[in-house]
Design a protein around this nucleic acid. Structure first.
Lengths: 221, 221
DNA sequence: TAAATAGTGTCTCTTAGACAATATTAT
DNA sequence: ATAATATTGTCTAAGAGACACTATTTA
């Protein structure tokens, strides 16, 4: 049986919260096509490796971390999306703790940097703007109905920091009392006996996420 | 730049409600691998066509209908999932009105038939059991939070028929009054002046879905 | 004691779920 | 009249959202 073979890439939208801002890693391409333009990090699947393994490898190469939240987003495959030929991409999104991650520029790119999702370059390579917008939509949706938000924080954090994560991603203010009531009712946090002492004000209690192991979901939905 | 090229297929889980049962189309394979086993309908992407176009084409070939609900599900790509070599599949799910669809057996299969999801063959070809289970999970999730359920009904239907759709998919009984209250509050239905006269009992009013055009979602989520 | 952030409770409104009686048709 | 299905409303409990004051620390 005959079938066309086509190139399959993975691209990863790597989110973090940094400086009270929601950021993604973008890389500046050193090679054609879209030379000198910003793109989402990614690369081709290398035989034999599963799609998810390729995504994890790219994530590792790009950030130096593994064991972070990684979820398949969507597969993009318009015939003309890549001028080199027929190439589809399986897009993923990842959530990382910015205190543990520094973008790493691989050899085929000039730079790898955190960019605010609220101030992206006007043009991105390929269909990466579409991928990024969809990732942001999915992230916001997930934030409301799941606990993915915890993946963006260090091991111990204050409730105000957690609330800031939510506010930054959803891009709106939340009521402090309602937020805490809600989080408390979920019963997901463990209070520590330690406080974050910083500044001339009452210290904030540090909490950690109860679940040690996070079950990596196929899509949950 | 060098990259491995791999085979890319689409597989479609085609759901319907028929005989008060949730069913999917399965085809019996005439060719190796998995000869004589049941599989989800699918096929390879033909250049040049988008992934979604391939899915729509397969759906058309399999059912004779187009313009039905079609949503990308997930991309499955374990290296050994296909004994012929490295082939990944982009899985879709579709919802069709059983009064308009009859499964069509293509040349490479013996039969194409509706199978109840509650009594599937013990073994399915490839990783199709996993795909089917995931599709069912997604369908149930969507049913609770969106209006996909309407896609499974003819243009005009009774509230009892709509409730049966929900009960069949969710595999549990729903309270009639609460169900109608909920549907009514969504304000999605248009009551007609006609009734379904059938049997020795009070006739049921026929309703239709207000939205003429359904916006085909990328994933909504 | 002033400035800054942490922490906490009540009320209202909406929604989900449990629950049963009447209405209309054909036979 | 009987059998069969359609149609309709109330009560309660839980959750979402609006809203303001006290607590604790450093300078």
């Amino acid at each position: 049986m005959y079938y066309d073979k086509i190139g399959v890439a993975v691209d990863i939208v790597i989110f973090t919260i940094k400086d009270n801002d929601l950021k993604v890693i973008l890389v500046k391409r050193k090679l054609s096509p879209f030379k000198d333009m910003w793109a989402i990090p990614g690369g081709f699947i290398r035989e034999p490796e599963s799609i998810e393994a390729a995504a994890m490898r790219e994530l590792m190469e790009e950030t130096g971390v593994k064991d972070v939240y990684l979820e398949q987003l969507y597969t993009f495959g318009e015939p003309k999306r890549d001028p080199r030929g027929r190439i589809i991409t399986v897009a993923y999104f990842a959530l990382v703790d910015s205190t543990k991650v520094k973008p790493i520029a691989k050899t085929d790119v000039y730079e790898a940097e955190w960019h605010s999702v609220y101030g992206l370059p006007k043009m991105l390579a390929f269909d990466h703007e579409e991928i990024l917008k969809y990732a942001l939509k999915r992230l916001r949706y997930k934030l409301e109905y799941t606990t993915v938000g915890f993946q963006l924080l260090p091991d111990r954090f204050t409730l105000t920091e957690l609330q800031k994560v939510y506010e930054t991603i959803l891009n709106r203010k939340l009521d402090k009392r309602n937020f805490r009531k809600k989080i408390s009712s979920l019963n997901l946090l463990k209070a520590s006996d330690d406080y974050k002492m910083e500044g001339a004000h009452r210290p904030a209690r540090l909490y950690s996420f109860k679940e040690k192991e996070y079950i990596f979901p196929r899509g949950v939905i």
